[in-house]
Design a protein around this nucleic acid. Structure first.
Length: 639
RNA sequence: GCCGGCAUAGCUCAGUGGUAGAGCAGCUGAUUCGUAAUCAGCAGGUCCGGGGUUCGAAUCCCCGUGCCGGCUCCA
């Protein structure tokens, strides 16, 4: 007999070899079609597994994050079975669950067409209808190798060869056997609400030198309602797409004639950008940064010295000027180094914080360009902090505070990641340890929760990334703080210490919003184009009803402009309904209706974007209100 | 860069080998109107570029460019 304890519940004596499902039932947990697996002493197991020692069990419910992941993984297996039956000769690669869905990679002679998706989905529905059980079998690695070799599943064989363990588990449902760690749902009937969402190419093991496979994407949820909600969220994301809104709202364009990945700002987009820049300058000056500006290109020799030539050349643009090769800057650090070196520096000056709205050019590969979020020329809110080693931690904390405060201004939630040394990098082990330690310490000191990304750091140092989450819970890379012990070395930066000797400072690279282009794109989608008054390119539009009030409307326009408001006057001989519709589609915060009544009493009747109507407000009152609302917000100090 | 799809008027899109279409936007005129589209008329195209097949190509084939979805990359 063994003792089985229900998590947070009672304990029972059960015979050895009892199944997980039976044990849960005996413990009074009704698992019928709601539990998909169980956590046994923290390990996820199928409900059909047997128990042979004292343990604690907890059911994994279908609708829990773990349950959904298990179901999605099983859905991938079902999809693979469907593909196998419809496309004889196909080889299967890997098929994991991913965030909000799953995929499976196939080696198939002809790429899948969108029409194939419907066929595969229909076949999957049949398999689900058959309610085939998932059967687990543990076999020796040798046996598994033999099995997959016989089936001609070369990818599975390759995976198996890399597994160090002597035995592996196989899962079979219907005619489909897969090498898999599990666990899985008890049977295909558990899979209710699923949908195939796309097909694309994907390299085997993510390596562009290996074969290109065909990847089928799908998603699955516990209920049809949740699946529909998810699909609606995707629709909403499409409606908010900054590329679509960017055109509709007259913000920006990217023209083939000018070049891919090169953003052209239209008047309203340029206004928005300059409002963000004003905000940035003010906030940086408040925090002890000094504004600097560097040239657009610098001699290639300098990029060799910095290490960019060896590590970043493929992403740079070069130009031969007379006899000399120049590199267009992909980063802003070089000029900042030269500024530091322009005279002898004392420890009393440190930390020095050089801030630049620096426009950089990077040669991104053609297939990766995307609206404003991935471009070839962009402007960073970049700064380099040069300080003593002792100041590193407090400087990092200062930047983190800055970032968090700015995120609250725009209403973003965020997550923090720490990235460690990548394979291709410069500097000594000791320097990397010191830098990485400083970043860890800073975050632990502030009690900031963060995750670690091994090997994702910059070539010159470890970094902290802040990923913000927009209104649709999508994550975007914006802020990053990078520790750099090598550039000061390479450029021989020094400061004179209290002891009169020369010492080596440390440098931090950091951006808050990151790329202004990307941030604008994210903002457009976050606000769905309905910018708060302080960011709205046009804050108010005056809509005179008849020509009789035109003079009054012009007078109001002048008053509002004098008050520093961004106002437009729509004097076209159109109906009020028509003008309101257009202004509404442009998401202008205030539509100001001006008719005979308003002209008579020298008032205004503003309509808000949400449809609220205000009647007969004195001009001054309205102007003050918009002025107040249009002030650049001050960040709230983060705790 | 790689895999797949797409490219027709400013925008959204019809048009499967036989004289290029619609709605919206634009222009002109009429309408002076109270909270999401007033009416009428006009104009607008190297059908992405280049080559080929064909009596004839927006349509079929090849090459390029760009965009979209992914992969890879993202310092």
């Amino acid at each position: 007999m063994i003792k089985i304890t229900l998590d947070h519940g009672r304990t029972l004596e059960e015979p050895e070899g009892i199944t997980v499902a039976q044990a849960l039932q005996d413990l009074g947990v009704a698992t019928d079609h709601k539990a998909v697996a169980a956590s046994v002493d923290g390990e996820l197991l199928d409900l059909g597994r047997t128990l042979d020692h004292d343990c604690t069990v907890a059911p994994v419910w279908l609708e829990s994050p773990q349950g959904l992941e298990i179901m999605r993984h099983s859905a991938a297996h079902v999809m693979a079975e469907a593909v196998r039956s419809l496309f004889p000769g196909v080889k299967v690669a890997i098929g994991p669950a991913i965030e909000a869905g799953f995929y499976y990679d196939f080696d198939v002679a002809e790429p899948f067409t969108p029409e194939d998706l419907a066929r595969i989905e229909a076949r999957m529905a049949e398999l689900v209808g058959a309610d085939l059980p998932f059967k687990r079998r543990e076999v020796s690695k040798e046996e598994a190798l033999g099995l997959f070799r016989e089936m001609g599943e070369a990818y599975k064989v390759e995976l198996l060869e890399e597994i160090p363990a002597d035995s592996v588990s196989l899962y079979r449902q219907g005619d489909f056997v897969d090498l898999c760690r599990g666990p899985h749902i008890p049977s295909t009937g558990y899979l209710k609400a699923f949908k195939l969402t796309g097909v694309s190419g994907a390299y085997w093991r993510g390596d562009e030198k290996r074969p290109m496979l065909q990847r089928l994407y799908g998603t699955a949820f516990a209920t049809h309602e949740e699946l529909n909600r998810h699909l609606e969220l995707l629709e909403e994301a499409k409606r908010r797409d900054h590329r679509k809104l960017g055109r509709e709202l007259g913000l920006f364009m990217v023209e083939e004639e000018a070049g891919p990945g090169l953003v052209i700002y239209l008047p309203k987009g340029a206004m928005l950008r300059s409002l963000i820049e004003d905000f940035e300058r003010r906030e940086h000056l408040k925090r002890g940064y000094q504004m600097v500006m560097g040239p657009q290109m610098l001699k290639a020799d300098l990029w060799k010295r910095s290490g960019h030539w060896d590590n970043y050349r493929d992403h740079m643009y070069f130009s031969q000027v007379e006899e000399t090769l120049y590199g267009v800057k992909p980063m802003n650090c070089l000029a900042h180094m030269l500024i530091y070196k322009s005279r002898v520096r004392s420890y009393r000056e440190l930390p020095l914080r050089f801030f630049e709205l620096g426009t950089v050019m990077r040669h991104e590969r053609s297939g990766v360009l995307h609206g404003l979020t991935r471009v070839r020329q962009f402007t960073q809110d970049d700064a380099h902090i040069i300080c003593t080693p002792e100041q590193v931690e407090s400087e990092i904390l200062g930047v983190l505070d800055f970032v968090f405060e700015v995120m609250t201004v725009f209403g973003f939630e965020y997550e923090v990641e720490l990235s460690t040394r990548p394979e291709k990098s410069i500097g000594t082990d000791a320097e990397w340890e010191l830098a990485t330690g400083a970043l860890h310490n800073a975050m632990q000191a502030k009690n900031i929760p963060y995750s670690i990304c091994e090997g994702e750091g910059a070539f010159y140092g470890p970094k902290i990334d802040v990923k913000l989450k927009d209104a649709l819970q999508r994550r975007w890379q914006c802020a990053t703080i990078q520790c750099d012990f090598t550039l000061p070395e390479r450029f021989d930066l020094t400061y004179v210490g209290a002891d009169g000797g020369r010492h080596r400072p440390v440098m931090l690279h950091r951006v808050v919003l990151g790329s202004l282009e990307r941030f604008m794109g994210v903002l457009v989608e976050h606000y769905a184009g309905a910018f708060p008054v302080w960011l709205a390119p046009v804050q108010a539009i005056l809509l005179p009803i008849t020509d009789r009030v035109h003079a009054y409307a012009q007078e109001v326009e002048g008053l509002m402009k004098d008050a520093g408001l961004r106002v437009e006057l729509d004097g076209r001989p159109e109906t009020l309904r028509y003008k309101i519709r257009e202004a509404q589609l442009q998401k202008i915060p205030y539509m100001v209706i001006i008719g005979d009544r308003e002209a008579e009493s020298r008032t205004l009747s503003p309509r808000l974007r949400d449809g609220t109507e205000w009647k007969d407000i004195p001009v001054d009152t309205f102007v003050q209100r918009v002025q107040e609302e249009g002030k650049i917000p001050s960040p709230v100090k983060s705790p």
